[in-house]
Design a protein around this nucleic acid. Structure first.
Length: 118
DNA sequence: CGCATGACCTACG
DNA sequence: TCGTAGGCCATGC
């Protein structure tokens, strides 16, 4: 059922740490849905506004914030939220997945090890 | 039930 | 990095 898959997606999305971003494919894979990145997109689209889910931390594989169909919520709203978390965007509206990309192997990089330096 | 669309991804050039 | 092509699947008409 779709609802069950959506629950997995939400479970993964809520795990995205502060100041980090994850791609649809990544979330889908972590949710146990390798080829269902599109489903993640639909899941986000169906998300209510007052949701506690960090949907703004979910972006596409290109490192850019995806544009919702038809009316978008605002000019760079998602980008603003990410910037508030410390995520930096370049002129192309793209972010560095190498630095801000969420590493499932390093859920909490509170110490050294996974240093997002580059 | 079939067709078109979509907050997408991967592969190839 | 970008453009094109193929694929996946839920949702709406």
């Amino acid at each position: 059922m779709a609802d069950r898959d959506l629950a997995k997606i939400y479970a993964v999305a809520v795990r995205i740490p502060f100041g980090r971003v994850a791609t649809y494919g990544q979330v889908a894979t972590l949710a146990g849905l390798p080829r269902r990145a599109r489903l993640v997109g639909h899941a986000m689209r169906e998300l209510p506004d007052g949701s506690n889910l960090p949907w703004h931390r979910v972006i596409n594989a290109a490192g850019k914030v995806s544009r919702r169909s038809g009316l978008n919520i605002g000019e760079g709203y998602q980008r603003h939220l990410l910037e508030e978390e410390g995520v930096v965007f370049d002129e192309h509206g793209r972010t560095d997945l190498e630095r801000f990309g969420w590493d499932p192997d390093a859920p909490l990089p509170r110490s050294r090890k996974a240093r997002p330096k580059r």
